[in-house]
Design a protein around this nucleic acid. Structure first.
Lengths: 340, 340
DNA sequence: TCTCCCTCAACAATCGATTTACTCGAGGGT
DNA sequence: ACCCTCGAGTAAATCGATTGTTGAGGGAGA
């Protein structure tokens, strides 16, 4: 079917040139000088026979794998799925491949990273997950390949691609303020973690700028998952039902959880409480009421991370620190203006 | 940091044996006879130095890439995300890598497949998408690598890993019947396609077995997406509102869409209409009311497909035709018994 | 006319792992 | 004394692509 493999050797026989000449010709190697007509002949022949350099040969000689690795908590989280989609596209477009592994909870992630680097020889790691950054970052660095953190950032750590979480948190909260809310609660993540902490700061920023007093009791630690959002809303209602008219929830999933609790407890959304989430995904349109969110170009972010990594590997840049600022409010049904 | 690469050559110097001896020793090559103590020495040294065979060298010599390719419509669909997660785990566990590409709508998929095979040299394709199977399957076959269809099946085509769609459709419908429904609508996919067609058949099977007359007018062609589900429910209500008490929707996403329409039109779920979906995912618990679904082990299905592919490549089997039968009803809030 | 320098390529060595074909000495059988 | 067979490894070739080095032929300047 496919016939004998088309290698440089085959091309050499066909054209009468040496394989090294052909290799150089096809790559437009400037150290090769060749007659224009011969160059054309070689290129044409390669084209006709459908020559594709074998990545194994290339890798062996170059001591490179042209592969990146990514570790992701779970692909079932749409946020991560978007990021991975972008990274994948960027890798393929640049001639790299991307190995994605998901971290099964309970199994130490260190092993996954190590396997990726030592066994599969990935040249760089895209990190979308880390339980304990302080402890794990040094380990990662010790693996000897560059690391780019995506959707995460750690003090003093070089490479990251993130969205402006703090500005996003502020944007979300300000939107609630703009449509008339004053008593705004916040379902947060673990404040010590980057994303949760920044979003929380943004929430405070918006309150401050609007001259609204911060009420720590209106902040309930939740987490990123549906269940955590639901449980946190439960606690918040137990304590403060009726005293807030809007809530900014730290993630899309947790917002869905919060809404489910609100509905179950007979609190109308957005009638009694408006709900605003961070990050957009198909889920936002699938639940009812549809969710107002702060949307960032997550696919682009994934692509930027992969591209940045590749640039680093190819010495086109030394580091990547990129912040996507262009968050915007996507208004849907879960938020409503307050008239009073 | 990582020091000089540990290759067979390094091990040879350290132990005094020839690299070929070491290679064969480490792989327990039965054609090598070696003194037990020397074997132990070699293995110990390899362990100490952290030797990992370089996949590039191995690939080159073996003319194999140890990589599989998968083309998926979008990772943002949880169903596909689950399948890919499973496939990924299975590949990594077997020492293979998995290249996932997602089909951007509009770009011909044929190019993606070709690139995967010719440029990245994947040894097998996991196919989760195909617009037009009759036209594209021969093209895929012509690429010269084995193809396993996942969550899809085509008449006369050898390899597939699927769930028992028809039994699942029957199970879903029967559950509705069991809890008292008689007038059951169906939001279907394109009947010509495998999944949609089978699920529809299952729907009919259940009606037949229960002695309920099939009413073609209660079947509304929808599609697999949220929007299509929403629009189809719109049409169905326009035509038949009040004449059915339950609906079996062809996918999770479309069911979410259907529910959103039902709610907007003031039809209570499950009060007026019970909704049952096919396949389970985080989404089912995130929407409100939570969705009753037919759950299949999709992660396992992805893993089985990858494992089957690897078995084929390693000649442990000639083909894989596997059907997961163990679908089960996960009862949540979107369905309720009818008392009458 | 004699170097010297381009132009246009060819040669050969590598990268790391695997595989096929040997080698070398000790012991066994006749 | 001679041939053979094991046991225990060794040597060399190979996979395909990529350099670093070398060389033949021709034109130009001295």
């Amino acid at each position: 079917m496919v016939g004998p493999k088309v290698t440089l050797g085959v091309l050499a026989e066909r054209t009468g040139f040496d394989k090294s000449t052909i290799s150089r010709a096809l790559r437009n190697d400037p150290t090769l000088s060749i007659r224009a007509e011969n160059l054309a002949l070689i290129k044409r022949t390669a084209e006709e026979l459908g020559y594709r350099p074998d990545p194994a040969g290339r890798s062996l000689k170059a001591s490179r794998s042209y592969a990146l690795g990514a570790v992701v908590p779970s692909l079932q989280n749409q946020i991560h799925a978007q990021i991975v989609e972008g990274a994948q596209s960027a890798c393929l477009a640049a001639g790299y491949s991307l190995l994605v592994v998901h971290a099964e909870p309970g199994r130490p992630q260190r092993e996954l990273y190590r396997q990726l680097v030592e066994k599969h020889r990935v040249e760089g790691l895209l990190v979308l997950t880390l339980q304990n950054e302080a402890a794990e970052l040094p380990e990662l660095a010790a693996l000897g390949v560059p690391v780019v953190m995506v959707n995460r950032r750690s003090e003093g750590f070089g490479n990251f691609v993130v969205v402006d979480e703090r500005a996003g948190g502020e944007l979300a909260t300000r939107h609630l303020i703009d449509i008339g809310h004053r008593r705004i609660a916040h379902l947060s993540g673990e404040i010590g973690r980057f994303n949760a902490g920044e979003r929380f700061q943004g929430y405070r920023d918006a309150l401050d700028k609007a001259g609204i007093a911060f009420d720590a009791d209106l902040v309930e630690p939740a987490g990123y998952s549906f269940e955590q959002g639901a449980a946190a809303m439960e606690r918040l209602l137990d304590r403060r039902q009726g005293t807030f008219t809007a809530v900014f929830v730290v993630t899309l999933m947790a917002a869905a959880g919060a809404i489910s609790t609100l509905r179950r407890r007979g609190v109308a959304v957005p009638g009694d409480v408006s709900v605003m989430a961070f990050h957009d995904g198909l889920l936002a349109r699938a639940i009812s009421p549809t969710l107002t969110t702060i949307a960032y170009p997550l696919v682009d972010m994934g692509a930027a991370a992969a591209k940045g990594m590749i640039d680093i590997l190819e010495k086109r840049r030394a580091a990547i620190t990129m912040t996507f600022a262009e968050g915007r409010v996507i208004e849907r049904e879960s938020t409503a203006a307050i008239q009073s």
